[in-house]
């Protein structure tokens, strides 16, 4: 194994161990995310209206946002 490959391996191994730190926010930790001010969409009614306009004029629907808020409920 060449020196550069050894170096790459030495760098990658600690990286893979650190992957265990890549944890999603757990379901019970979403209290702050669930606050209204944390919503991506500040005005759901206006967004619904905009989506309706897109749907009516451009025959496009969906793809604007995921359903549900930050709390991950339902």
């Amino acid at each position: 194994m060449s020196g550069s490959r050894k170096l790459l391996l030495v760098l990658l191994l600690p990286c893979s161990v650190m992957l265990s730190g890549c944890q999603p926010v757990q379901a019970w930790e979403r209290g702050v995310l669930a606050k209204p001010e944390m919503a991506i969409d500040a005005n759901p009614l206006e967004t619904q209206l905009n989506n309706h306009i897109y749907f009516s004029k451009e025959a496009s629907n969906g793809g604007h946002s995921a359903t549900g808020g930050g709390c991950g409920c339902n």
């Binding site: 490959r5 391996l9 990658l12 191994l13 893979s16 161990v17 992957l19 265990s20």
Partner: peptide, 17 residues
């Protein structure tokens, strides 16, 4: 030594996942 080094760390990655 012909196996790319990146493959060497795949078992570790799998274990972590």
């Amino acid at each position: 030594n012909q196996i790319p080094s990146i493959l060497a760390f795949l078992p570790v990655l799998c274990l972590v996942l």
